[in-house]
């Protein structure tokens, strides 16, 4: 069982390295935003497998917290690409 979890951790880390390559190399900002979001997803998977490995449930709150922060970050980046400013004073003007 422990070898299975270690193998999964190595596979997710390899995918994270590929995604980091896309984050640095990415031709346009949309690629980078998708890469950042999938880094967040891979990080959540890593924390989940680490939580299985050390047999505790304290890390599960952190997964939800990372999911929320990653969601808000992706929304903010998308709005920046779409509109040019993230926080606007009055959108009805």
């Amino acid at each position: 069982m422990i070898y299975f979890i270690w193998g999964s951790i190595v596979i997710v880390m390899l995918s994270m390295i590929l995604v980091i390559y896309r984050l640095i190399k990415g031709p346009n900002p949309s690629d980078r935003v998708v890469a950042l979001d999938s880094i967040g997803v891979s990080l959540m998977a890593l924390i989940g497998m680490f939580s299985i490995m050390v047999d505790t449930s304290f890390y599960l709150d952190i997964i939800l917290l990372l999911a929320i922060l990653s969601f808000i970050g992706t929304v903010a980046f998308s709005k920046f690409i779409e509109k040019g400013d993230i926080i606007e004073r009055d959108s009805s003007r």
């Binding site: 929320i68 808000i72 929304v75 926080i87 004073r89």
Partner: peptide, 21 residues
């Protein structure tokens, strides 16, 4: 952490709507 999460919830509202709303 609770304060940071609450403020991120308000930030989500600010992003989706605007500061005046």
């Amino acid at each position: 952490v609770g304060g940071l999460l609450t403020s991120s919830a308000i930030v989500l509202l600010v992003i989706a709507f605007d500061l005046k709303t």
